[in-house]
Nucleic acid binder design. Structure first.
Lengths: 159, 159
DNA sequence: GCACTCCTGACCAAAGCAGTCAGGAAAGTC
DNA sequence: GACTTTCCTGACTGCTTTGGTCAGGAGTGC
């Protein structure tokens, strides 16, 4: 249930590409703009390329650009490209698990968890991200003050 | 963005405890009921105990039971006990991160992700889980057929 | 031909995951 | 008080993931 550095980097780099209209942007610039280790970023960009999120050209005047318009690439696309499936349980999709006994309904819960993640990640596009005009779903979620500090419900730890 | 075996096991064991009213349940029974390796489960139960989710007594007639009534323990409580904070980015809470340049609004997005996770995990109690009467939020999420199969949006992979 | 940039694989240390093993310490029973 | 039962705890293990670095190869543009 955590977001890896890789996913975070990937989205940030993609955002930078979404903002830079026209012309390839070289990896070095992306790395500097978002303070990401260059060599690590190159691996990430390669994965994004393999998944058809970005395109690239080498040589002078080379660089990376988005394969599709920024408003057609969602954060979910980017995250999936580098992290794989979004809410697997024990490395298998929730709907494929058979629970027995008293945890029979746990499957529904995990499916709901995945659905709620999707409702955010598949709704926000790179265009939304750079413009700051986030979709209503997100605006509503972050408008509640509770969302902004650590655990509120019970006397537990953070987040 | 995945659910570990440990978290899955923890919730299942907790569900089993929620269903067994009155009297401690021994680890072995929990392990059998949910097909969880006993020794691994004992470590998990210990963690749950340290976090005040369950109580335990040793010896004959010993076992584990919930520290609070089943309708006052949420799945979020259990998951946090064994996995720690629920939607950290790079191991720090989303609201604590400063993004620059074109990814400035990414923080809002991660906060929204956490909020949406909470809206499910903090809403479902162990009582809900064993009875199958899931809260409206969850019912609505799982009522949409899309929620039940892998990735729908773009031509990407699963989940 | 040369500079530039991406592409790729190999490698690495540290941490996390999913357990197992061995023994100790309380609680109840006889 | 001995004995059994059950939890409690730490140490250990093998494997994978995370978060990178290093070195070199391959395509592009001038």
């Amino acid at each position: 249930m955590r977001v890896s550095a890789k996913a975070d980097y990937a989205v940030r780099a993609a955002a930078e590409l979404a903002a830079a209209d026209e012309g390839p942007v070289k990896g070095e610039r992306l790395a500097e703009a978002q303070e990401i280790p260059l060599q690590f970023l190159e691996h990430i960009l390669l994965e994004l390329k393999h998944h058809g999120i970005v395109r690239a050209r080498r040589g002078a005047k080379g660089g990376y650009w988005l394969a599709r318009p920024a408003d057609e690439v969602t954060i979910a696309d980017v995250v999936r490209a580098v992290e794989g499936p979004i809410a697997d349980v024990q490395s298998t999709p929730p709907e494929a698990i058979e629970y027995r006994g008293n945890s029979e309904h746990l499957r529904e819960v995990w499916v709901a968890v995945r659905a709620s993640l999707r409702s955010v990640l598949e709704e926000v596009t790179l265009a939304n991200l750079v413009s700051g005009e986030l979709p209503p779903v997100v605006e509503e979620l972050i408008s509640q003050p509770d969302a902004w500090h650590a655990s509120t419900s019970t006397k537990e730890m953070t987040s």
